[in-house]
Design a protein around this nucleic acid. Structure first.
Lengths: 254, 254
DNA sequence: AATCTAGCTTTGTCGGACAAGCCGATAAGA
DNA sequence: TCTTATCGGCTTGTCCGACAAAGCTAGATT
């Protein structure tokens, strides 16, 4: 073989993949902005010079990746990938890898503490109002584990949002999607569980309002430790996130 | 409208989506295990009673989601979603959302510190050997920014692996994919940058070996602070991760 | 027994087709 | 004049049938 190869690697990617890559590139590097139309399938057929079936396979790839979607009239347009949808895929992966609740707990502890620190530093008035609204609704359903669990998950989402750090927001989501569905089970079985949960939220929100980082971290840790103690009454932390348990996290998918 | 609705919601999902969902369900709940064959397209056509084009569109969706892949002979089989591939999608999303380097830095600080804490607690001999191997190779290319940057990224991946926490491993990946490509620029422009990087890695590994959490955290923070100082010499932390910059992170994709 | 070859299978791609839904324009009615 | 109904076009989702290339299988050959 010559020192400098005569030929470049021949590109053998299937056509549908090349179609997907081509469109993806245009979106990633900003030549097509979110919200802008991609064109009809027929136009893509003409531009790429491949069959419509091939174009459609490429479109499915991008659609699943969240880079494009179809608007109300089903025409293609670029879009900003939704964290939620991507996070669902990650949660799915975590389940298949059979991660343990201990891993989930440890990671969530880190991520939620980071969230609250960010929220204490940078929460806007709007953020605080949203959290306050959530807290109010939570207090009203303290006896209803299902509703309370849902509001608990929302509280933590809002807290991450209040941190104004979208990387953190994204990073915590997959774990949270698996972590918080258990809240319903726990709150339902631990006496005073609901009341403790709402109390913790109240202290956290209070700390955010007062810009008191120490208090925020303290109560967030307590809140998660409560979850942990509650969980351990039901099952071992070293149990893996099971397939059957998936049903919950799964049903929440869009 | 009657109190109890007479009719259930009509399911209007397109056929290809239903095909994808059906296969996905079987994999998620464990009835099809990773590595097991899904069957040929023809068999799926027969089972679902739809056209092959429709089946193929469904397959593309799952393939992109990382739930199934084609083996060497292009037959379909279930598989464990690779973190790396999914993380690339997330990185893409972060770019499109134009997150700032400040967000990236803050989140990475949290996640890398959590990684090193886990590594100090639980790194196995194998993990330590891998890290040592990386350190040795890094020391050998301390004057070469491109190679060093790549080894730096690997070091942090290995550290996360050593934490034995797969949730953390997954959570840090998207940010890392965007964060570490800048290392090359920084090391190349800051005198002694390469030497400081290797020194930091050496101290971190040492701390992991000695199970000294404080030292591990300290040097990890210093290491990242170094990155930050270096970065600020080149650009503002509040600059968003740009499209053009994407080329790097993007080329690394599988 | 190891190898080779021919045939079968499967995938990737193509061309064409049609029903259903959306859109805009035009015609009909108040 | 303003609203409503109807009518074609266009687009998407789905189907059918077809074919080349590549992989696999099994019988034929050495």
């Amino acid at each position: 073989m010559p020192a400098t190869p005569l030929f470049r690697r021949i590109d053998v990617a299937p056509a549908y993949q090349k179609v997907a890559d081509a469109i993806e590139r245009e979106i990633i590097n900003g030549r097509i902005k979110p919200g802008e139309p991609i064109g009809t399938e027929q136009q893509l057929v003409a531009q790429f010079g491949v069959n419509r079936s091939t174009v459609r396979e490429g479109i499915r790839v991008l659609e699943e990746g969240g880079l494009i979607r179809r608007d109300s009239s089903r025409r293609l347009q670029a879009c900003l990938p939704r964290y939620n949808k991507l996070a669902t895929r990650l949660s799915r992966a975590l389940i298949l890898h059979e991660v343990t609740f201990r891993e989930l707990f440890e990671a969530s502890m880190t991520l939620e503490v980071a969230s609250v620190e960010g929220a204490v530093e940078r929460a806007s008035d709007d953020n605080i109002a949203e959290l306050a609204g959530n807290l109010e609704r939570s207090a009203a359903v303290v006896g209803n584990p299902a509703d309370l669990a849902e509001l608990d998950a929302e509280f933590h989402v809002l807290m991450a949002k209040a941190s104004q750090n979208r990387v953190l927001q994204l990073a915590r989501e997959p774990a949270a999607q698996l972590f918080f569905p258990t809240t319903e089970m726990i709150v339902g079985r631990v006496p005073e569980g609901g009341a403790r949960l709402v109390e913790a939220h109240r202290h956290i929100l209070d700390a955010i309002k007062r810009r008191d980082k120490e208090a925020g971290v303290l109560w967030t840790r307590r809140h998660l430790q409560d979850w942990r103690r509650g969980f351990e009454k039901i099952a071992s932390l070293d149990r893996s996130v099971e397939h059957t348990y998936m049903e919950h996290a799964y049903a929440a998918r869009q």
